[in-house]
Structure formats: structure tokens, C-alpha cells
Design a protein around this nucleic acid. Sequence first.
RNA 1: GCACCGAUGGUCUAGUGGUAUGACUUUGGCCUUCCAAGCCAAUAGCUCGGGUUCAAUUCCCGAUCGGUGCACCA
Length: 575
Amino acid sequence: MGDIYDNVIELARRRGFVWPSSECYGAVAGFIDYGPLGAMLKRKIENLWRGFYIIREGYYEIEAPTVGVESIYIASGHVKGFADKMCQCPVCKEYHRADHIADEHGTAHADSLSTEELAGIINGLPCPSCGEPLENADVFYFNLMFQTTIGPGSQRTGYLRPETAQGIFIDFNRLSRFYREKLPFGAVQIGKSYRNEISPRQGMIRLREFTQAEAEIFIHPDHKDHPEFSRYADYSVSLWGQTHQMQDIEPVTPTMREAVDSGLVANEYVAYYISLTHEFLTQVGINPKKLRFRQHLPTECAHYALDCWDAEIFSERFGWVEAVGIADRTDYDLKAHAKESGDKFSVFVPYDEVRYEQRRTIVPDMGALGPHYRGKAKAVADALIESEPGPDGATITLDGESLFIPADLYQIREETIEVRGEEVIPHVVEPSYGIDRILYCTLEHAYEEEDVEGEIRKVLHLNPAIAPVQAAVFPLMNKDGLDTIARNLALELQKTGILAQYDDNGAIGRRYRRQDEIGTPYTITIDYDTLKDHTVTLRERDSMQQVRLLASTVPETLSRLIQGTLPFAEAGRKI
RNA sequence: GCACCGAUGGUCUAGUGGUAUGACUUUGGCCUUCCAAGCCAAUAGCUCGGGUUCAAUUCCCGAUCGGUGCACCA
């Protein structure tokens, strides 16, 4: 057999976590189906995430369409920037990045050239694969966004979103109103995003349709101290900064306070979400020893991002997998949408005290300007307002012509203006989670093959909070009324919101193994003692230990076990 | 996209120019007083399309998916 990946994926397929999509018509790379247990697991991971970001941080969730009009992605830069300029070698048919080829042969800023310019430059250069000259090779765009058209016969172009973030940015003004126009505030979105990857490999790691959980937190550009920073000030995580990477030295583990003060992490907001991400991922079940935070190198950091850290999870198969990106995107996106849409993407921030400013305004005398300049009067007035008048009059430029306006055609007013605050374009701190990657890594870290008396026991050590099935109820024997008692107990559990499977098929050991494989944390068995004293056994998946307790207390006890507020040893009498 | 390798019940596999082996799983039954025990039975398969052939799961070509390398990863 292969490595742990093969074993995990085999189990995931067999037991209904993850399946290839549209199998009966031939599966398509980059798309997967979540089966019954996978969909449940995914939802539980998402709900744990909601617990952090919505309930604790107070950033409400929105849901925007996955199809967006072209303008959104023109503004965000995806229409232009999310495309690669490619060319194909006429000899070996290999595809290459045209700008990379030009770059290697000494062309500066090749990525900013047009396709025509690039085609001219690479013409005759050797193909990086076969070495033959690239004769008259076309340079064309390959955009990684899925394109569609909106409406019948419509010329309106739409794109499937390549990230959920833009849906939040373009709702900025509505959100600002919702939060009563007070920074900081944030919104989150969990949903599908789409990227038409050239070569999606690596199973669930690189998908063409994937789920993101993103938070966009709008903060004042001059106040990047997180109000709740004390929560994580003493928290320490493994940080692999730019300088560590370039000098090839190990990550360091300072406290967040130290990391911010030393300048390793740009500000408290970024540090706060690094810690929160660490806490979230370890709660999901990621092994903290296989988790590190790596700072983007200057070359890979998007040009607008001020600081960017990836949470990387170690996979036996894929190495360090980028699962979360935490970036300070500054005001890049809001400015871009302001420019493209013409709307204002800012918040009015009042000063602590009202300021008074002396201001000199020029008030044109339209009654005099009108008859004098006729059709040009309006333009003259506008130019006048912007001008710097001398003692006798002002010189303005209109249609390239210099024009002198005598001082009696306008008034100069010295005013004291009350300034209560200013319009501020917030900076955006963005923690962005790849749920599918987290889910895979969780499975991989939870998976264990244990040798029990010569048999291999496959167990998913899933955190009870995210296990798709929380409990199973077995009658020891399928007779003497044990089965009825077991069924009734399963019903009782379901009434308290616990997903409990009833299973009476096969030997008891086999039933335990089945539940171990899907990560069910607790199993309850009804035996002959139950008939005498109404007690049942409760078995813990990880230790295989059992305790005995009254059947009537099982729902309450299980709830507390799942919440983590009751240690298993105290759940009942040891056997 | 390219090159190489692979694809047989749900899973893992044997094998073949004449529609297929075994194990595990699953389901039903018997048995069974707590960790994949035993017995009986049942269900279930040659990735897809084309070609060669009387006949293709097998040979050839192509596609799809998976793996590896190249390229790509805003």
C-alpha cells in the first residue's frame, strides 16, 4: 500500500467523506463531492469557524452571489492581473509564460508589456523546453477565472468569483451603515470560489471549485492596535519571517507582544489573527507541531499587501500546505472600487474635538461673469475657484488660453470653517481560510492505524466538536429486549440534538471498528446488566476505555463530553 | 497543456483474445454476554469511445481520471 494519503483518501471514499465528482460521466479534475460524512464534517468545521469570527469577534456573515459582473473584477484587477500571458512553442507544443521567457533574456518589467510587444520580444528566443527558436509564437492571455454571460442574449459578461472577498468589499457602504459607521468593523463570508486551474492535481489540495471562509476587517489606517489584543499578547506561535527564510534559519516562537514590538509582525491586527488562526486550527484538530506561520517573501507578497502570513500545515504527502492567508491589504481594494464605481468607499471619522480652520474661498460674481463671458461663464467660474488671485485679479487657463479676470468679478471670502472630522478609507485586514485544505489536513492528522492484537485498527481521532457522528448506540445482543432499549436511547439522544447512530449488525467488535473509522467519539452499549439496574457502558474512542452510568443520564453526560466540559474519567464508574 | 506510468465488485487484488480469481467490506440468517471470532447465503466488477478480430477486460489509437516529472500557482 501507499502512503498515509492513499490510506486516508481510501477511507474517505469508502466511508462517504469525499468522492470524485460526476463519476458516472467521468470525473473531472479539480472538482469533488462531499459525501454524507464529509458534508457534515465540513459544516462542523465551518460552524467552529463561525464561533470564532461571528460569535466572538462580532463580524456578521453575509452571502453574496458567486457570479459577479465584469466591473467587479476589472476593479479588483482580476480581469487583467489574474491572467497569465502564455505562448506555445511551435516545435514541442510546450506552454510557457511569455513574460518569464522575456524576463530571462534581459527584458525589464516584462510582465507589464502588451501581448504584441511580448510576441515581438520572444520571437526567435529559444524555447525553455526544447531549445528550438520560438518562431512567430502568439502571446495570449489565459485567465484563471471562469467566464459566463448573464441573461439570454445578453452581452453582459460575468465571472465566477475567484475569492469571496470582493463580495464584501463592494458591500462596504451598506456594511458601514449596518455597523453605524464606526471603525473597526468586519464582515465574513463562507462560500464557494472558483479558479480555472491549468493543472489541478493533489486531490483536494488544489481544486477548481473550493470553499473559502474569509473575514474582511475594516480598520482605521492610523490605529492598527486590536482592542482585544491582550487576549493573545502572551500567546506564542511558530513564526517563520522573511529574514529567517532568507538566512535559512529556523522559525522563532515569540509572544505576540514581542512579535509586534520587534517589528516581525506588522501590527497587532495581523498578530491577533495569526494567534486566533492558531487557536482555531488546533481546535479543529490540526497537530500544533505540524503548524507554522510563514511570512510572504517580498517577491510573493502582492504589491498592495503590507504584510502577509500564511498558516502552513504539514502534510505527509504534500509537505507544507498553505491553508490560511492573513494579509493587511491596506486600502487597495476600497480605492479600486471607488475609482471604478464612482462611489465613495470611506467612513467619516469625527475628530475628538471640533477643529476650526481658516479658509479662503473665491466666490465668482455670476451676475457679472454671465453677460461678459456668456457660454464660457461656468467654465471661467470653475477655474476661478481653483485659481490663485493676485491683488488686481486672477489669471486662469481656459482651453489652453491664458485669461485675466479682474478682481471686481469675484469676491474673496475669509471664512472660519468648522471641521468635525475627515473621510477615511479604511485598511483591510483579511484572514482567508481554505476550508477544503483544512478538512483534508484534519483527516490526515486525525488518521491513525493502530495495531490491536495483530489486527489493524483504523481510527479517526476527530475532535468531538467536529466529528460527523457524535455517538453510536449498540445492543450487545440483538434479542431479549436489548435492541428496543438501545433504539429508545438513540431516540433520546436525537431529541437533545446529538446525532446518534443505532447499529445492531454484526459482532460488537466490528461495530466499534466501524465507528472508530468515521471518528465517532462515543459509543454506548446496552447489555444484560441494563435490564437489572438501568446502567449502560460508555466507551471512549481514543482510549477504548469504558465507564458505566445510568441510561437516563446519558444525553446530559454526552452533551458535556462533546462540549469538553466533562473529563471522560468522571463520566461514570470505571469498569 | 506535454512526457512517462497506471486504471478489474464498495475496498484491495489474481488472471485471460472466448465476459473473470481470491480476500475484506456490505446485506439477510444462525450463533454469540464488550473490541473486525465462527457457520450458511445473497448483492456486487473488467474507466469511457473508436479500431483490429468471428469474438476485446486483454492487442492498437484516443479521451477521462489518478500518480510522477516539466510548466503553472494573481
